[in-house]
Amino acid sequence: MFLRRPVVRVCLGVIVALGLIAIFAPAIAPYDPVAQSVMAANLDPSAQHWLGTDQFGRDILSRIIFGTRASLTLGLLSPLIAAVCGSLLGIAAGYFGGLADRLIGRLTDILLAFPALLIGIMVAAALGPGFWELVSALAISFAPRFARIARASTQSVRAENYIEAAVASGLTHRRILLRHILPNIAGPIVVVLTLWVATAIRLEATLSFLGLGTQAPKPSWGNIIRDGLDNLFGSPWPIVSAGAAITLTALAFSLIGDAVRDALDPASQA
């Protein structure tokens, strides 16, 4: 039923389109995104270069198109990894209780107190630049969110009578976790996951903008803005268009996130 809402359809359309652009970037992009041309630096938009060129004479449209790859993979991958790792920790804490629970609970509380961006900056600075480093930085800053949700959900499910019965009947922990706990807490985790994709995309852009993210010459929307800021007087187009791409993508994902939340958790509907 949530697929029937026009907003959701439009957003899904946008996301599918972005996915296709990312996958078929080499076929769609009019130019090689790293090919330089000294003679064609800082051109204004024209029929040849729809968004003009940057200070190295690289085609901005092609860079934005290829940048979709970095932003989408990071935006999807890092919340996913955070969800898996965070949930495992949270489930373990909520299910087994005891010292592990206290430690993990405490740690997530502490990390949660910090804005994700700040943790991202710290981790990214410590790990240095690179794709997996960036994924780790984003995943680490998101993981506590998942851990907390998973822990709380697990605790409430754990308290249900049927779990007690299952434990009493001698089912293994693994079975209980897989059969009973996981299906019951999957909903809230998926909601958080979809909500954080948009944040991940913006965070990737921010870190790249601060010089801690995706590396040149590989384009990402964040580092296109960073490069663009150094060359603002050459051409404002990289900033304007890359920022618009980030905004559009984040908007699509957060609307989908809201819709998923409304669908899975009707109580929160406003």
């Binding site: 913006r202 800021l229 603002l232 900033i239 980030i246 908007l251």
Partner: peptide
């Protein structure tokens, strides 16, 4: 509000800088 939550702050700042200041 949705737009405001989606737009990266530094992009908004850069736009202000480009259009309002410069």
């Amino acid at each position: 509000a949705l737009l405001g939550l989606a737009v990266p702050d530094f992009y908004l700042g850069a736009l202000f800088l480009i259009f309002l200041s410069l």
